[in-house]
Design a protein around this nucleic acid. Sequence first.
DNA 1: CTACTAAGTTGGCTTTCCCAACTCACATTA
DNA 2: TAATGTGAGTTGGGAAAGCCAACTTAGTAG
Lengths: 142, 142
Amino acid sequence: MAPRSCSIANALGVVGERWSLLALREVFLGVTRFDQIAANTGASRDVLTVRLKKLVAAGVLEKHQYSEHPPRYEYVLTDSGRALHNVMLMLKEWGDTYVTEGPLPLVWEHSCGAVLEPRVVCAACGEEATSESLTRAAELTH
Amino acid sequence: MAPRSCSIANALGVVGERWSLLALREVFLGVTRFDQIAANTGASRDVLTVRLKKLVAAGVLEKHQYSEHPPRYEYVLTDSGRALHNVMLMLKEWGDTYVTEGPLPLVWEHSCGAVLEPRVVCAACGEEATSESLTRAAELTH
DNA sequence: CTACTAAGTTGGCTTTCCCAACTCACATTA
DNA sequence: TAATGTGAGTTGGGAAAGCCAACTTAGTAG
């Protein structure tokens, strides 16, 4: 039996390996250079090289040369990369609530002035999208 | 330099290894038994054993015996596990948009009748929480 | 008594990971 | 001009994790 075909699996195929999401976290936080990404994530340099190459190949990051002499590069988000912001927010929210102990290492404030408490809602009606409020509309068999 | 302390890293420490989120996906879809989780994810049985044990130890899943003779078990979500639904939704949404090609393997319908298009909003004001609308409110140094 | 199912275990091999040291191209300081 | 520093990786060798198929254990069904 073949494993279930699924966008979660497809997504994890791109950003699911160790260090990938942490490298992206750094770029979201404005840290765009190899050495600093390595230091802030704790990834070993060789693995980080492989991960960044894969993220670039997948169109999540772009490698920009910001200096020709000496040659220096930075990694910037593409549209696809920026769209991962939601995933990061929810992962952070879950970690804040169920994993991290003691004071939270990072708190976001929304432009409305409140400390951000993210919620997932249905774009159509604005109501919260809980697992109970969802039904399967279609599923491919193969 | 120590790596950045962060709830995303903490979250990934619990559910970030390969197969963990796919096993959880199965439980969300109602598939709660070892053999079927193995088949539907594609995880090898030995690794799946380790992952499920870790998820149980972390309080994300609970192992329930649903038959004593013969002894049979199922895995069910805890509150912490159910809270991962948002993470899954966003990961699926990103995969749908940027990775999966062709027709989507799975579509959710919200109770309002619309096909679900999930959005992340600020609980306080209801406005969308984009990366541009957020500022860092506090960060621990250590 | 044999076959079958669920839920793992086990052994052997392959792949990936980790770490420290090294390279390379240039800039800066002495 | 020699030595030092910096950014962005590469390389090599050992340790850990992963993959697969076969085996086990406990019980049911024919």
